[in-house]
């Protein structure tokens, strides 16, 4: 029986939700034209089916991926799901269908457009996460390190191990403003929680002094005879700069850290 195509799946955006969509697609002999999460723009061209996340179904799909494709493929789609590539979820479904047909070898098919699309997406995610390991800036407020980023991909799960190791004895919060969630860390534990907004304003004299010293360093280290703003821009795209101390103007006054939270997330933000 040929698969039905002209319809759209909608799900809650979770990884288990996506795997449930994969399950439904097989069970109902459907190949949806799009799989949409709440983050996606909703188009209403086709009939849409709401797929409720079902942990039994998602676990079955995951076991199937591990045994019939490979454990690497399972890790790979988990990463791909964090990326922001166009039509991400439908591409993951297409990849899995190919994988179930050809087995573990699917991971080598780098030249196949269906595989390559996801590989490039994961690469982009990893590159952005690596960028943020360097470009992210903390401001210290009452002993807590706070940061806001605006990534295109969901990078928090990727940068968590790095920062939680490097600053293991600190309390810190990294707010992903694009995806409205935050990584919170305290010695011995870190987790990612929903968070709508975080305002950071330094007011402490020592903090402002350190920021000024860093700006001075950044400005002084450049060699005038080799100024090259194009190169600077290709290495450090403008979109990262609003959150970076060295590209912000000197601040002289400010208020305490404020935090509007959506859920019961904000132990750290109570400071």
């Amino acid at each position: 029986m040929p698969d039905r195509t002209n319809l759209v799946y909608r799900y809650d955006g979770s990884f288990d939700g996506l795997l449930t969509c994969v399950f439904e697609s097989y069970a109902r002999h459907e190949l949806p034209d799009a799989i949409l999460s709440p983050d996606d723009m909703q188009t209403m061209l086709f009939e849409s089916r709401r797929v409720e996340t079902d942990y039994v179904k998602s676990a079955r799909v995951l076991r199937g991926v591990m045994s019939r494709i490979s454990p690497e493929a399972a890790d790979f789609i988990r990463m791909a799901h964090l990326s922001c590539i166009f039509e991400r979820d439908r591409r993951i479904l297409v990849f899995l269908r190919l994988g179930f047909d050809v087995g573990p070898g699917v991971m080598n098919r780098l030249a196949d457009a269906r595989v390559n699309a996801l590989v490039s997406g994961v690469r982009y995610l990893e590159r952005e996460a690596h960028h943020y390991m360097g470009f992210l800036r903390f401001t210290e407020i009452d002993g807590v390190l706070a940061s806001v980023i605006q990534p295109k991909n969901r990078v928090l799960p990727l940068i968590d191990p790095h920062f939680s190791d490097r600053f293991n004895a600190e309390r810190f919060i990294i707010h992903d403003a694009s995806h409205r969630c935050a990584l919170m860390h305290m010695p011995g534990c870190s987790r990612i929680v929903p968070l709508d907004e975080l305002h950071i304003t330094a007011s402490n004299a020592r903090e402002l002094e350190i920021q000024a010293l860093w700006r001075k360093f950044h400005q002084t280290i450049a060699i005038e005879g080799r100024l090259n703003p194009q190169l600077q821009r290709s290495n450090l795209p403008l979109r990262f700069r609003p959150e970076m101390t060295e590209f912000q103007r000197e601040k002289t006054t400010g208020k305490e850290i404020g935090c509007h939270e959506k859920s019961a997330s904000g132990r750290l933000s109570a400071v």
Binding site: M133, D165, R166, H218, A222
Partner: peptide
């Protein structure tokens, strides 16, 4: 303690000369 190191290195910023 504070601090670790990544084998591949990390760029934290770029100066006006692009370095």
């Amino acid at each position: 303690t504070m601090g670790n190191s990544m084998a591949c290195g990390i760029c934290h910023s770029f100066s006006a000369d692009g370095r």
